[in-house]
Design a protein around this nucleic acid. Sequence first.
DNA 1: CCAGCAGCCTGAAAGC
DNA 2: TGCTTTCAGGCTGCTG
Length: 270
Amino acid sequence: MPELPEVETIRRQLRPRLVGSTIVGAGSHWSAKFTPAVEAIGDEISEVERRGKYLIIEMEGDDGPHDLIVHLGMTGRLAAGDAADLAHPHLRAWWRLDDGRILTFHDARRFGRVHWVHRGDWSSIATLSAIGPEPFDDSFTAEHLHRQIRLSSRHLKTQLLSQRPVAGIGNIYADEALWLAGISPAARTLSKPRAERLVVAIREALQSGLDNGGTTLRDYVDSEGHSGANQHRLHCYGRSGEPCERCGTIMRKRELDARGTTWCPLCQIR
DNA sequence: CCAGCAGCCTGAAAGC
DNA sequence: TGCTTTCAGGCTGCTG
C-alpha cells in the first residue's frame, strides 16, 4: 500500500543513487505487467520524479527521451543493491547499472507494474493520464476540490481514491484525511467550507506520512529496507472498535465500494 | 460517458 | 496440529 508519502520517501532515496547511471542489462517476470522493464537497456537515468503514486524514472537514449514508470501496487519494493537481491522469489524486474549495482523491483502480489513510454506521453496509462494535481501544489485548492467532487456522484472517499481530484491518496491516507476533516467517507457532495477543511486535512495526513518515513502496516519498506513509523501516529485507519481520539465514540469499520473504511460515526456524521 | 464491480495476486492471520 | 477461509486493496477493463 505505498501511497504518496511512501513513494516520495523511496524517490528521495533513489534519486541521488541513480541519476547519471546507465542501464547495461535488465530482465523481468514473464507477465506483461513487468516486461517493459527491458526496454530501458542502453539508456542513461537523468532524473527520478514522482506523480501521485507513480515513480517516473527519466531516461535518455539513442531513440530519444523516455519515461520508465514504476507503480508499486500493494507490495512493491525497490532497492539499489547487488546481485544477491536477484535470488529473491518475488523478484519481478531488475536493471543492472554500469557500476555493477542492480536496481531490483520485488512485488509479492504482482499488483505493481512497469511501463515504458515516450517522455511525458502517459496516454496509455489511464489513471496517470487523468491524474489530479499534486496535493502540495498551489493548484490544489478548495475551489478545485469542490468543483471536481461535483463532477461525480460517487462516494467522496471513492472519488479521492480515483486519483482524479488529487494525486497520491490511497486507503490509509483517505481514511486519515476524512477523519481529520470531520467528513463522512460516504458523503456524495462537498460544500465549500468542507472542501477548505479537506484540503488542509489531506495535506496534514500526507505530511505526517512524509515526516515519519511512511506507514508500515504489513509490507512497506523503503529502498533501504527500513520500515516507516507513521503507523504509530494514525488517528483513524486500523482503529475500529477503539474510542475516537476527538470525541470518545467507538470507531466503526465497514466496506464502502469494496474498500475497508474506518470512521467515527459521531465526528464524521453524514 | 459513467457507476459499479469482477478479476488480478499471494502471504499472513484467523477459523475450524 | 494442519487444513481451509478470510483479508489486505490499487488499478484495469468490462457491463449495463
